[in-house]
Computed example of a mutant assay.
Amino acid sequence: MRFSQFTLIAALAVACASPAPAQEKLPPGYTFTPELTYKNVSQDPDGIWEPSDLELFGDPPHHPDIYTARVSTPAGEWMLSQITSGCSLQSECPFQLTLKRPNGPRKIVAGGMLLRRASAVLAADYSKIFTQTYTGIETFPVEISK
């Protein structure tokens, strides 16, 4: 009896388990691989995230971490910033992509969700950014004309 109960429980656990994240390749372009830059922060030193994005969360309560990656191109310096609050159950967390043109201010040009510790790719023509998510590759438009 005990063996059949164990077998039933194991079968149910396998049937209810979530599928593994989709494994698609990112297209070619400029690659961003965010790394931990600021830990447990209530203010963003880069000025990208609003204070409301950096409020306490979790148990025990803590402020989010910020991961960043930078890439220089002929258009200017791009920075991808990702915070660890607002993440989904699949560890997809919000990101903002910014562009700082020579002699200009840094502007947010795209945003969306990206798996924690995953890479994103900016298209060679700067028109979109591709991110790795739990369900596969997502595409977000980049608005550099702002």
Rank of each mutant, 00 (worst) to 15 (best):
G111K: 14
F130V: 00
N40E: 11
Q96S: 12
T84S: 13
S52Q: 13
S4V: 13
R117N: 14
T135A: 12
P61G: 06
Q132C: 05
A15L: 15
G47Y: 10
W78C: 07
Q96T: 01
P105D: 12
V41H: 11
V14E: 04
Y67F: 15
L114P: 06
V121I: 04
T98P: 06
Q82C: 04
L36N: 09
Q23R: 15
F32D: 06
Q82M: 12
F57W: 15
R101F: 00
A20F: 08
H63G: 05
L8A: 14
I48R: 05
D46V: 12
Q82S: 10
M79S: 11
I83Y: 04
L8G: 02
A120D: 06
K128S: 11
S42Y: 11
A120F: 01
F32Q: 12
A11E: 05
L80Y: 09
Y38A: 14
M79H: 04
K25W: 00
G111L: 01
Q96E: 08
A10R: 08
T68F: 02
G29A: 07
S88W: 03
T73V: 06
R2N: 12
L26G: 06
V121W: 07
I129E: 03
A118N: 08
I129V: 14
Q5P: 00
T133Y: 00
Y126V: 03
Y38Q: 10
G29P: 07
T37A: 15
G29L: 08
P74D: 04
P61Q: 12
V109K: 09
M113D: 05
Y67C: 05
S91D: 13
E55Y: 10
P27L: 10
E138V: 02
Q96C: 00
A69I: 13
P27I: 09
E138C: 05
G104V: 00
C16V: 08
K25F: 07
R101I: 00
K25C: 03
Y134A: 15
M113V: 01
I108W: 00
C16N: 11
G111R: 13
T139A: 13
L89M: 09
G111W: 08
W78I: 08
V71E: 14
R106L: 09
L56D: 03
P102D: 03
K107L: 13
K128C: 02
Y30L: 11
E77N: 13
E143Q: 14
P19K: 14
V142W: 01
V14K: 10
I9Y: 08
Q43I: 11
I66C: 08
I48E: 02
C93Y: 02
L99H: 04
P45Q: 05
K146G: 14
K100E: 12
S85H: 14
G112A: 03
P94L: 05
P105Y: 00
G29S: 04
T135D: 12
S127Q: 11
